[in-house]
């Protein structure tokens, strides 16, 4: 589903990703763990198509198709969703308005009809209720004045409404207390399915108690240095990243 081959990425002449190779299959939930600064967010941005980054070598395929020449919105329409580590604020734009614009833009790109207002409202209300989001919050400008945890919930709300085929979650657990973590994890688990792939980026093991991954990859200095099953996460929790960083 997602194939990354020998990816080399620089920014302002500084090398950040260093021959990263990773495959995530349909139905698989893969976790990437790694110390701060190892390039995890950079990887998520490059997959989603943020500019500024220079890809000097390598390839990214989504469902067998290269995404490197696609605009971020084209990648979104192709089914890619990124839950940001630091979601952006959009002053003056009600969350509801934003959700509608995003959902309809993607429908348009896929040649589908716009949602009727009734249908849209129904979907949003249901999805928000599942994530414990107060409907009043949807009237407020997107992410403006939201707490860290509220912003993360809003990312998951968008993810469930946009129904992507491949999801990347970048440190969605950071800033969440334990109850919020459980709710968010439930939201993510509800989206697991045989046709959907997920890449869960995290610094800590604790998220993986709630979203149990199929595979775990350790990232250090811009590459994957070790891959294994979910038990690898527990080992990391015990021994830390130091050995891997040194070896990388």
């Amino acid at each position: 589903m997602l194939e990354i081959k020998n990816l080399h990425v620089e920014i302002d002449g500084k090398k950040i990703l260093n021959g990263l190779t990773l495959t995530v299959k349909a139905g698989e939930v893969a976790a990437i763990m790694g110390p701060n600064g190892s390039g995890k967010s950079t990887l998520s941005y490059v997959i989603a198509g943020k500019e500024d980054y220079e890809i000097t070598e390598g390839e990214i395929l989504l469902n067998g198709q290269s995404v490197l020449e696609m605009e971020p919105n084209e990648r979104a329409a192709a089914g890619l969703f990124l839950a940001f580590q630091y979601p952006l604020e959009i002053p003056g734009v009600a969350t509801m308005t934003f959700l509608k614009a995003a959902m309809n833009a993607q429908r348009k790109a896929r040649g589908e009809e716009e949602l009727t207002p009734g249908d849209f409202m129904k979907r949003v209300r249901e999805a928000a209720a599942k994530l414990g989001i107060n409907p009043d919050m949807l009237k407020r400008p997107l992410n403006v004045g939201f707490s860290g945890g509220e912003k993360k919930r809003m990312e998951i709300l968008q993810m469930s409404l946009l129904d992507p085929s491949f999801c990347i979650l970048d440190e969605t657990d950071s800033g969440l207390d334990i109850d919020a973590l459980r709710i968010v994890a439930e939201g993510v688990n509800a989206l697991r399915g045989p046709s959907r792939g997920m890449l869960v980026i995290t610094h800590y093991q604790r998220l993986l108690d709630h979203i149990v991954p199929d595979t775990v990859h350790v990232m250090a200095k811009g590459r994957i240095v070790k891959s294994g099953g979910k038990e690898l996460a527990l080992e990391l929790e015990k021994n830390g990243y130091a050995d891997y960083v040194e070896a990388a």
Partner: peptide, 14 residues
């Protein structure tokens, strides 16, 4: 640019 990228990641064109 970050705001634009965020919106585009959600499917809006530039």
């Amino acid at each position: 640019d970050d705001q634009l990228f965020y919106c585009m990641q959600r499917g809006l064109d530039e």
